[in-house]
């Protein structure tokens, strides 16, 4: 397999093709547009530029129900527009992949600068309770690898899977070896037009809407929760680098920011979640070895709450805002923490 110099977004497109993508619908947005630019040139993939992100995710859901692997890609503003339909896709159990290349928000924010402000939106952006699987790689090679994992997890869980990226790693060029020997999961449910099933966003039992059967609703939600946990267990991705020297500090970061954390691998132990949700439980085994845990995120503290809730202990938090990842600044902040 020859090496290729690829941009992060190109790697996502290439991996989607390898995973069996047949349908893509999207709306132009910085910094995600290169994904559709790449896909329009692929012969066996139908690409549509829709009128907005709401139409995009709904067309993708329609295509997926029709039996083909489907994906959309966007950034924060578009991801916000998609939220209602993400909950809907969970309710109807539609396997799709949603790529969110994060940029600085809220609102139009700073479109060309990277951020990690959509982490909690991934799990709580839509109304009601749902349990998405979310991956967040930190390199071009990983974007390639986890795009394929996202497609597989979507097929296994019959649910929308979110691949987080950010303006930094999606626009990064790196040399990767795009392997094709991954296991690819195929669709298990029959396509539309084969039966008399009814897919609905209403609470339902099989094909029958049940709008006031409370026990049925409770069964439905716990089935979804169990299903997502079970699938997630097979995608238990994280990175843990134990410090060579004696240290009592664990530094947690993810995505673009975690690339800077590697600089401190001789000072602290490093932990990086790759499957963001459901939160990887291994941190419960790792954390007790350290007196202090410091966490950095490119937001005001979104994932740190998830880790704190899991560990039931306090974590020192460093926000890196506005899209600037500056080594000297981070060193300074870590010194202040020390």
């Amino acid at each position: 397999m020859p090496k290729q110099l690829l941009q992060g977004n190109q790697a996502i497109a290439l991996a989607a093709e390898v995973a069996g993508l047949k349908f893509f619908a999207g709306y132009p947005i910085t910094p995600a547009s290169e994904i559709i630019h790449e896909l329009v040139n692929k012969k066996h993939i139908k690409t549509l530029q829709m009128e907005d992100e709401i139409a995009s995710i709904n067309a993708v859901m329609g295509a997926s129900l029709a039996g083909v692997k489907a994906m959309t890609a966007t950034s924060g503003p578009g991801f916000s527009l998609m939220q209602e339909s993400i909950g809907h896709a969970h309710m109807m159990e539609v396997p799709i992949v949603i790529v969110n290349v994060q940029r600085v928000g809220p609102s139009t924010g700073m479109p060309t600068l990277p951020a990690q402000g959509d982490v909690i939106q991934c799990i709580h952006g839509s109304h009601g309770d749902y349990f998405p699987i979310v991956f967040y790689p930190n390199s071009v090679a990983e974007l390639y690898q986890y795009t394929i994992a996202a497609f597989n997890a979507a097929e296994e869980s019959l649910s929308p899977v979110i691949l987080l990226s950010d303006g930094y790693i999606s626009h990064l060029y790196e040399t990767i070896t795009p392997h094709r020997d991954f296991e690819i999961k195929h669709r298990t449910s029959p396509p539309l037009g084969a039966s008399n099933r009814h897919f609905t966003g209403l609470s339902h039992e099989g094909s029958i809407p049940k709008t006031s059967d409370i026990d049925n609703y409770r069964r439905l939600i716990s089935r979804f929760q169990e299903k997502q946990q079970l699938t997630a267990q097979r995608y238990n991705y994280y990175e843990y680098l134990e410090c060579g020297k004696e240290t009592d500090i664990l530094l947690i970061s993810y995505g673009a920011l975690s690339r800077v954390a590697y600089y401190f691998k001789n000072d602290f132990s490093l932990y990086r979640p790759i499957r963001m949700f459901p939160v990887v439980e291994e941190i419960k085994i790792i954390a007790p070895k350290y007196k202090r845990i410091i966490m950095m995120e490119m937001n005001t503290g979104q994932y740190v709450r998830e880790i704190e809730r899991l560990l039931r202990r306090e974590i020192e938090f460093i926000p890196i805002l506005g899209g600037r990842i500056d080594l000297q600044e981070i060193k300074q902040k870590l010194r202040e923490e020390k």
Partner: peptide
């Protein structure tokens, strides 16, 4: 969202 879902189905199959 009926129309975009229908369009997705039609363009896929």
């Amino acid at each position: 969202r009926a129309i975009p879902v229908a369009e997705g189905i039609k363009y896929a199959i």
